[in-house]
């Protein structure tokens, strides 16, 4: 039996009795960043495969989401900083060892580029909003001509953006729940899956809905596999990791994790998408919305539960 207590009245705000330095904006950002990464990735792949005429939703209409999602995500990030007036210090240095520094630089490049992509499709997307400035039309023509190069840049950028949200958490060895190598690929897969779900929601043709239904199904299965991997890794891990796993399996976050993420966010949509592919009539919006909600809840569970886990006390 061991009992440990603070006798000097240690009660540091946000640290004791449990760490709570990251709040809802971080979870929301991780979700929006993953969603934007997924959309940008599919957009770039379809463009590079020269299928952009066949899948207009992916390359055109859904491309409105990433700039909005990234801008809101950045605002959320800055909102959660405790010393926000010094945020520019992020861009005074490149720190290879710090995932947050990687993320800051990738966001600095990706966010403006996602705006430029929308401008490159301006005439086709908003035929009524004809901007008559000469420089804008020149810019639009120039961007439309070089769309392929932008797509080439988006592939690595979107993958780094998607994976960094997970690596950011897994780099903290002091938080046993986060400290596993599978979190990066898991967040990337979840981001791609929410991206596919958003495309299904916006798609107008059955062909697009069908293709992204299939992609989403594969991604959901991969994600389930990665979640099992993560839990097994913690189950076979050290004591602190076992304690961390118990938060998700049988502890405080079980209902949120298994109910909203695994069952409603992954299993139910997978079954619905499967029955739809087999030929039954299923409104595809339902699994898509479930996947999006599941992705958001997953970020909340990981951020909140991870902060509770610690080595001492």
């Amino acid at each position: 039996m061991q009992e440990e207590l603070f006798t000097s009245g240690r009660n540091i705000p946000h640290i004791d009795p449990s760490l709570e330095i990251w709040h809802w904006p971080i979870s929301v950002y991780l979700f929006l960043g993953g969603l934007a990464a997924g959309l940008l990735f599919f957009m770039a792949i379809i463009t590079l495969m020269e299928k952009d005429k066949e899948y207009p939703t992916v390359v055109k209409y859904a491309s409105i989401i990433p700039p909005i999602a990234l801008s809101l995500g950045l605002l959320a990030l800055i909102y959660d900083l405790k010393h926000p007036l010094y945020a520019w210090q992020l861009y005074m240095t490149v720190r290879i060892e710090s995932p947050m520094s990687w993320g800051a630089w990738v966001l600095l490049v990706t966010t403006p580029m996602s705006f430029l992509w929308v401008i490159s499709y301006w005439k086709e997307m908003f035929p009524k909003w004809n901007i008559k400035f000469n420089w804008f039309q020149k810019l639009e023509a120039f961007l439309a001509k070089n769309r392929k190069y932008m797509a080439m840049a988006f592939i690595p950028l979107s993958i780094v953006l998607g994976i960094y949200t997970g690596i950011l958490l897994s780099a903290f060895n002091a938080r046993p729940l986060w400290n596993n190598a599978i979190l990066g690929p898991l967040f990337l897969t979840s981001g791609l899956s929410t991206g596919a779900a958003a495309i299904i929601l916006m798609a107008k043709t059955a062909k697009e809905k069908h293709l992204f239904g299939k992609i989403d199904l594969v991604l959901i299965i991969v994600e389930l596999g990665l979640i099992i991997h993560m839990l097994m890794g913690m189950y076979a891990g050290s004591e602190v990791q076992l304690e961390a796993m118990q938060l998700l399996v049988g502890g405080e976050f079980t209902l949120m994790f298994f109910g909203f993420v695994v069952i409603l966010g992954l299993l139910v949509p997978a079954v619905m998408e499967l029955t739809e592919l087999v030929g039954f009539k299923v409104p595809v919006a339902i699994p898509a919305i479930l996947v999006l909600i599941g992705g958001l809840v997953f970020r909340f569970v990981m951020v909140e539960a991870g902060q509770i886990t610690r080595y001492l006390y």
Partner: peptide, 21 residues
Amino acid sequence: PNECIGCGACIQSCPYDARYS
């Protein structure tokens, strides 16, 4: 202090919970 943006990454990374905002 004037290089710190208050992101909290170091607070998350400390196994001793020795840092505070």
